[in-house]
Design a protein around this nucleic acid. Structure first.
Length: 614
DNA sequence: CGTGACTCT
């Protein structure tokens, strides 16, 4: 390896341009804009050097040394996520037992980036290079130098260590996604920076939202600090733009809008398989049900077409599944994504969230009018999630970190006062906050420590009064996974029968207890799940969450007690947490209409409930 | 008779 630039040594000779906001902007010095496609069988080291980010190695290290915050803008594929942490380690940022942290919004990304980096560094995952996600800590204290983690885990770590003293640098990746936890993390890191001027932040983003990020992180230091200012990093953020992708991307558009986007995506996959050279194909769809449906459709096609379709291996990939291997060549992007939209007054999620009526689809050979549509009409980013979400969990976490003035918190995107007040109301009515909006003792602090929706946490803590913590922990774990039922297309009758085997007259919560019992008796068998139309993966997650909850309540000194068949106790505990959602049946309604007590909102029992039409 | 946005702790 050639020489590394170390912090404190002479600055690199790259083109530096002062930008209007006082940050430093590096422009690419290389004139060759050619991008190589594919890395062939080059060595790992050679592959690293071919990544676009490699040209900016010195610049990045220089900026991180000199600036408290560095904003790195670069397209997917530039190598930011895998390379920058390694550059930092090579430059000495992990020396003296310090950690280089790199956050990702999703668990899958944490695992795959971490294992790639471990491979490049040439170490076993979990040693010098590790990762932490919920239920899985692959780090070795005293040994780990680069640690990948979800931003949610880093926020949790702040409860133990509010200034994150173990970290010398924290890189927040995918900041352009503006997820609740990323935005919250950015706000908290800004606060930490005031107390820890030595901490370096790297904000990594795929889009030029860099300017607003830069304004957000621009902290004016007080005069009292001027004396030591020459030893401290510049508080004004630096912006660095990484040009290039590292591989070529050809984009093809459909010529006309398609009526069935799923069928169109499936057809495109078949065309690529038939006509293009071999390679893995990644298809982006909006959710688990569409993914499962597409897998089924493709497998049926393989059955029909036979022969040279038999080597087509169809694999689903979503959060609920274990990680699949990488190595993608073709991408089919349906252009649709699902978003939540929260109304603080009605507390409802609209069934059809805002979105484009027409989808784009890669795969055909010619450019078309739809390309223009794609470029003009499809917004790259929407309203940050923070501004369209229920803030109950978010507020309680900030409170637990000692941030009392929620309305005055410095958010990257401030939520509406209505949404904040609604969340404060709910927390107050649950007894989690007092009249001064402070966490109550012990309830509020305990709720903050439980990694669940505060309503469910309240349910758990109330269960102690009714002697049913055993049952309520099971119910809480079920309420924390998507759905334990597998999606059924075409086998409705058998599905309904399977469900009836577990159905309880008391409702869905008690039904969960029956499923849990059955799953345990089966020895957690996946065969048993398959027979009963249950999602094995989801039930294993229920077990994991339940185990985590058992550990937490034991720490609080709450015993695990069962009420046996006393479902009255279970119902009382549920109501203690969920009373804000109480409704009453409209007596004269023909169609089983209920109205919420709080706002007289019309509601109906969901068709997936065991109480539907009873 | 008739449905379920996606993450994260």
């Amino acid at each position: 390896m050639s020489r590394f630039w170390r912090p404190g040594s002479e600055k690199p000779t790259a083109a530096i341009v002062e930008d209007e906001e006082g940050g430093v902007l590096f422009l690419p010095t290389s004139t060759s804009s050619s991008s190589s496609s594919g890395f062939g069988y080059a060595s790992l080291e050679r592959q690293r050097q071919l990544l676009p980010v490699y040209k900016y190695r010195k610049a990045i290290l220089y900026l991180v040394e000199r600036h408290a915050t560095t904003i790195v803008v670069g397209e997917t594929g530039s190598g930011k996520s895998t390379q920058i942490p390694q550059y930092l380690k090579e430059a000495g940022w992990a020396e003296g037992g310090r950690l280089i942290g790199c956050t990702q919004p999703r668990r899958l990304a944490v695992q795959s980036v971490a294992s790639r980096v471990a491979e490049e560094v040439g170490v076993r995952l979990g040693e010098e290079v590790g990762y932490t996600i919920r239920f899985e800590d692959q780090t070795n204290p005293g040994m780990t130098m680069i640690k990948f983690l979800t931003d949610g885990v880093l926020i949790r770590e702040m409860m133990e260590d509010p200034l994150l003293t173990k970290y010398s640098v924290i890189m927040v990746d995918e900041a352009h996604e503006r997820s609740i936890s990323t935005d919250m993390l950015l706000g908290l890191l800004k606060k930490i920076q005031r107390r820890r001027p030595d901490l370096r932040l790297i904000i990594s983003s795929a889009t030029i939202e860099a300017r607003s990020m830069s304004t957000f992180f621009n902290i004016r230091r007080k005069n009292s600090m001027l004396e030591s200012a020459d030893r401290l990093p510049n508080p004004e953020p630096a912006i660095l733009s990484v040009e290039g992708k590292g591989y070529t991307v050809e984009i093809h558009y459909v010529e006309e809008p398609v009526s069935d986007y799923l069928q169109a995506a499936v057809n495109t996959v078949l065309i690529i398989h038939e006509k293009e050279p071999p390679g893995d194909i990644l298809v982006f769809l909006t959710g688990q049900d569409d993914i499962d449906a597409a897998v089924k459709m493709l497998n049926e096609e393989i059955q029909h077409r036979g022969r040279h379709y038999l080597d087509l291996l169809i694999l689903p990939l979503y959060s609920g599944l274990p990680r699949g291997d990488q190595g993608v060549v073709y991408v089919v992007d349906s252009g649709f994504s699902k978003q939540k939209c929260y109304n603080p007054l009605s507390h409802q999620y609209p069934r059809h969230p805002q979105g484009k009526e027409q989808a784009e689809l890669g795969g055909c050979d010619r450019e078309s009018a739809l390309e223009e549509f794609y470029l003009k009409e499809m917004q790259p980013e929407g309203i940050p999630e923070m501004q369209r979400s229920n803030l109950v969990s978010c507020i309680i976490q900030l409170k637990a970190l000692g941030i009392d003035n929620i309305l005055g918190f410095d958010w990257p995107a401030s939520p509406s006062p209505e949404a904040m007040i609604r969340a404060l109301e709910v927390l107050y009515s649950l007894g989690i906050l007092d009249e001064d909006a402070k966490l109550t003792v012990p309830l509020g602090f305990q709720v903050a420590e439980i990694p669940l929706d505060p309503m469910i946490s309240k349910m758990i803590l109330s269960a102690n009064n009714f002697g049913c913590s055993d049952e309520i922990l099971t119910i809480a774990a079920f309420l924390s996974v998507q759905s334990v039922w597998v999606s059924m297309r075409g086998v409705k009758k058998e599905f309904d029968e399977a469900k009836l085997r577990f159905a309880a007259a008391e409702g869905d919560h008690v039904t969960f207890l029956n499923i849990y019992k059955g799953f345990h008796q089966s020895g957690k068998s996946s065969q048993w799940c398959y027979k009963n139309f249950l999602n094995h993966q989801a039930l294993k997650k229920v077990i994991d969450i339940r185990e985590q909850l058992v550990r937490i309540i034991k720490r609080f000194g709450i015993p695990l007690t069962s009420c046996d068949r006393d479902m009255e106790a279970v119902r009382k505990a549920i109501i203690a947490g969920a009373f804000a959602n109480a409704c009453h049946l409209e007596e004269y309604s023909q169609n089983g209409m209920y109205k919420t007590i709080r706002t007289s909102q019309e509601v109906y029992i969901h068709p997936s409930s065991v109480l539907f039409r009873l």
